[in-house]
Write a protein that binds this DNA or RNA. Structure first.
Length: 511
RNA sequence: GCUCCUGUGGUGUAGUCCGGCUAAGCAUACUGCCCUCUCAAGGCAGUGAUCCCGGGUUCAAAUCCCGGCGGGAGCACCA
């Protein structure tokens, strides 16, 4: 063990080897970790979604990281639709993803579609075939899959150049979908199963949303991404961890083609607990009507988050707080809420609400009107509330009050409960603010506005759909609610933040 | 099964490459106090991690080495 005390070591070092004591430049970093091989002004990143669904929190993470790095190094961000499978892609998804990005405030320097580069991709495929790095395989899907598992090379692999070129041309005309694919000549004995002669091109006859039936031979992901990234000048390509095994094929394709190689880096996937992101799970939910649509506030889609009252700045801060790691994360939704709350607090007008309304009659009320500030700190104006002595208070408060209790109706006066029951009765005991008695919010009964508050809960418990994932609370609020625009974030005092969804409906954002 | 990735408080992370400055920083959550005509926001304080486990190297290890164990992903003519 260390027998000599530290300070003694230090003083001895100082006299003998002063140079050892100068601390290494280990500084704390702020924001995302530095990028290797990043030169200021020369970094190019890309956000390459497939337009096959609505954008969600996972897209947000990717796009924000892509953009942050581009900005950090004074570089460029390319927004590219990886639309190489007409079976999945639809025009509305292109639009939805773009709308989502814009809402997030992600600014890109260029937009493009992989499908616009088909001629180039064909050229590259042909180049690989001609050089013997790829071949056309006409085996059945089943036998290909079996051979890959068992590391068996099929007879197509042995075909000569003449056969491959002929078959390649036939793919554009005669072959039917499934009858022939272009395969990369990898290594059927590789430990990395991805390298066992992966597919490069295949035939799909579905109409492409942009190009209709102009093409029917389409590249698959590994091939298209490598070519596109390289051609687009991407220097740093980020993707989620599940693609990690595909790095080998990515680099090898570019190597064989003599093309420039971007750096590929992986980060962990972002998903909230009980809020699945996959189309496989979401689609049936929407179709079966278990959620109202892709903007159902229980969903992790961008539209849903927006409708729920989460603001883009909060999402960005949240994503950045997760940093850039490969470790599996169970994302803390409450942290997103915390960022959100801090951002919206100063701009959210305060309003009174009565959930599970309970009537309260103040017998000796003589006040006709009261003026209340819309926010305790920031100047959001004020509102006038008409009074006639009858109120709704929240059921929870009503239950906890007993005869003889004194309580302050916020911004109004103090009352003593004279009768518990329905309605509850009370009488004014004074106007002066007393800090020691409980303070409760109220809604004037005479022109109370009836609303429903949708409270989103966790959607899945384990892999089980939560039948009680959406609670609907009946409530009354002040008439001023009607004057606010749809989309306004409100803080209902002593209840929580909600976003106005319509004249009769609000969505609970968070506490 | 094979291959790859990953493992720091309840949660998310910083620090790990280049061992000492930190027996571990920040955020979130929770608790208390202050402020406040809200159970919000703001201010302050506190609880909470021997850095998955076991060896080893070293004067010194979360950080290096070896061996375990846990978690995740991939093994498609989807991306």
């Amino acid at each position: 063990m260390n027998a000599i005390p530290l300070d003694k070591q230090k003083s001895e070092l100082e006299s003998s080897f002063p140079e050892l004591l100068t601390a290494k430049p280990r500084q704390d970093r702020k924001g995302l970790p530095m990028l290797e091989g990043a030169e200021h002004g020369k970094v190019v990143t890309r956000f390459p979604p497939e337009p096959n669904g609505y954008p969600h929190i996972g897209h947000a993470k990717a796009a924000i990281i892509d953009e942050e790095y581009a900005r950090m190094y004074g570089g460029r961000l390319i927004f590219r639709f990886d639309d190489t499978n007409p079976e999945n892609e639809r025009l509305e998804y292109y639009a939805a993803i773009k709308v989502g990005l814009d809402w997030l405030g992600v600014r890109y320097d260029a937009v493009k579609n992989t499908s616009d580069d088909m001629e180039l991709i064909y050229k590259k495929a042909e180049e690989l075939i001609l050089a013997g790095h790829a071949y056309v395989c006409t085996c059945s899907k089943e036998s290909i899959s079996k051979n890959r598992r068992e590391m068996i090379e099929c007879k197509c692999r042995a075909g000569d150049l003449d056969q491959n070129t002929k078959r390649w041309h036939k793919m554009f005309e005669k072959f039917k979908p499934g009858e022939a694919i272009v395969r990369y000549r990898g290594d059927m004995h590789s430990d990395n199963t991805v390298m066992r002669d992966p597919t490069l091109m295949r035939i799909i006859d579905e109409q492409h949303p942009l190009h209709k039936d102009r093409y029917r031979v389409w590249p698959n992901y590994d091939f298209a991404v490598a070519i596109e990234d390289s051609m687009d000048g991407v220097t740093h390509a980020f993707r989620t961890k599940e693609y990690e095994l595909r790095n080998e094929i990515y680099y090898e394709i570019l190597d064989k083609l003599g093309m420039r190689k971007p750096r590929v880096l992986e980060f962990s996937r972002l998903e909230f607990e009980g809020m699945p992101v996959s189309k496989r799970v979401l689609k049936p939910l929407v179709q079966e009507g278990r959620v109202s649509g892709y903007d159902d506030p229980r969903l992790p889609t961008l539209e849903a988050l927006k409708r729920r009252g989460i603001v883009p700045e909060a999402i960005r801060k949240f994503v950045l707080s997760l940093s850039f790691t490969k470790s599996d994360t169970l994302a803390p939704f409450e942290k997103l809420e915390s960022f959100n709350r801090k951002i919206i607090d100063s701009t959210s007008p305060r309003l009174f609400i009565s959930v599970e309304p309970a009537k309260l009659i103040v017998k000796n009320n003589t006040m006709k009107e009261v003026e209340v500030q819309n926010h305790p700190q920031t100047d959001l104006g004020s509102r006038r509330i008409q009074l006639d002595g009858s109120f709704y208070i929240s059921g929870m408060d009503a239950r906890s009050l007993n005869e003889g209790d004194e309580v302050r109706l916020l911004e109004l006066y103090n009352v003593r409960i004279t009768k518990k029951g329905t309605p509850m009765e009370a009488e004014i005991t004074g106007m002066d603010f007393k800090s020691e008695i409980p303070k409760i919010q109220w809604v004037p009964a005479q022109n109370a506005v009836k609303i429903e508050v949708l409270v989103p809960k966790i959607l899945f418990v384990g892999d089980q759909f939560n039948e009680n994932s959406l609670e609907v609370q009946e409530a009354f609020t002040e008439p001023h609610y009607l004057e606010l625009n749809v989309g306004t974030e409100i803080q209902f005092i002593r209840y929580g933040y909600c976003r106005k969804d319509s004249a009769s409906q609000a969505i609970y954002t968070h506490k």
